[in-house]
């Protein structure tokens, strides 16, 4: 009772807020529930959707195959489906500290190879599917996974380089990090999409997916480098002194003593950066790749289904929210340990 009084009516201002918020909930919640659930049309019937007053979830029901798998051949959808489940499974598996052993990298290697085989095909009697046709959920996940996998080691090198006492190395690392962090991701994607073909000898082509992936890796590396640098700075100086005293050469002592501690401290901000990166993959839409957001947007262009943007983007929000919220909860449970 006392808790109720303190938390809802603690002062006259507090009481006003409580009444105001209850009023807002009262006015907004029932119409929203009507729109989203009670009056909503769940069948994939465009006429019923337009006639109805509620949300048109039938749009999602109708388009869900395209949204999840993009332009991948319809009858082969089982392959990206399994690949998606496998990839999510790998991530979940890696989340448990118990499994942070040396063989984890082997598990990843095997898993990624399997995913590659499933997606590309070409062997074991499976038809070859070129990666221009990949899209939807699996593309978003692959961009994130490979982006982080390559960016992370690069970021460690950058962070160590930035703290180096060799002025040239330090200058190069600082220059790279500040350049990448100072410009929008979109300009890097444009650069990769448009300029990378010009940088290479004529005749050599890199496909669009790889170009975007390279841009994302370079982008992530700069931001992750700053997080790792924070971790390196947070280690008490005594650790560096002790490592020096052991007369280990630079790379040995960095690898055995400094890095493990720096990374352990950095896990929460690292996970936050991972979450941001996962959200940033949505930008590849702008250079014409068919990630999850892109497939949702394209399915709206179907003339029988125009006008349901609100439903579409609410659905997109829910999917991204589910992934990101799970990751942020995970990061918070880390902080508590």
């Amino acid at each position: 009772m006392r808790w109720l009084r303190e938390n809802f009516f603690g002062g006259w201002a507090s009481g006003v807020f409580t009444l105001l918020l209850i009023l807002i909930l009262w006015k907004a919640l029932p119409p929203f529930i009507d729109w989203a659930f009670l009056d909503a049309v769940w069948r994939p019937d465009p006429k019923a959707c337009r006639a109805g007053e509620g949300a048109c979830w039938g749009f999602i029901a109708e388009k869900h195959r395209f949204i999840l798998f993009g332009t991948y051949p319809y009858e082969l959808h089982w392959r990206p489906a399994i690949a998606t489940v496998l990839l999510i499974g790998l991530w979940i598996f890696s989340a448990f500290r118990v499994f942070w052993k040396w063989w984890l990298s082997i598990v990843w290697l095997v898993g990624l190879t399997l995913i590659g085989i499933l997606m590309w095909g070409g062997i074991f009697g499976m038809r070859y599917v070129e990666n221009e046709r990949w899209g939807g959920m699996i593309l978003t996940l692959l961009l994130t996974t490979f982006g982080l996998a390559f960016a992370f080691p690069l970021s460690i090198l950058l962070a160590l380089g930035r703290r180096s006492d060799m002025p040239v190395i330090r200058a190069l690392c600082v220059g790279y990090i500040e350049l990448i962090r100072g410009v929008p991701l979109i300009s890097l994607l444009f650069m990769a999409s448009v300029m990378l073909p010009l940088f290479l000898p004529s005749g050599v082509t890199i496909d669009k997916l790889l170009r975007a992936q390279i841009a994302m890796i370079l982008f992530a590396a700069a931001y992750l480098a700053e997080v790792v640098r924070g971790g390196l700075q947070a280690i008490p100086k005594g650790q560096y002194d002790a490592a020096h005293a052991l007369a280990l050469p630079y790379w040995r002592r960095t690898y055995l003593i400094i890095l493990p501690q720096a990374l352990r401290i950095s896990v929460p901000p690292l996970v936050n950066t991972f979450i941001g990166f996962f959200k940033d993959t949505s930008l590849v839409l702008i250079i014409g790749l068919f990630d999850l957001l892109s497939t949702i947007k394209i399915s709206l262009q179907d003339r029988t289904w125009t006008g349901f943007g609100v439903e579409a983007y609410l659905f997109a929000s829910l999917v991204y929210f589910a992934f990101c919220f799970a990751m942020s909860r995970y990061s918070r449970s880390f902080e508590r340990q």
Binding site: I275, A316, Y320, C324
Partner: peptide, 11 residues
């Protein structure tokens, strides 16, 4: 914080 900005802009 958990929904990409681009999704929010489209919304």
């Amino acid at each position: 914080r958990n929904v990409p900005l681009l999704v929010q802009l489209f919304f």
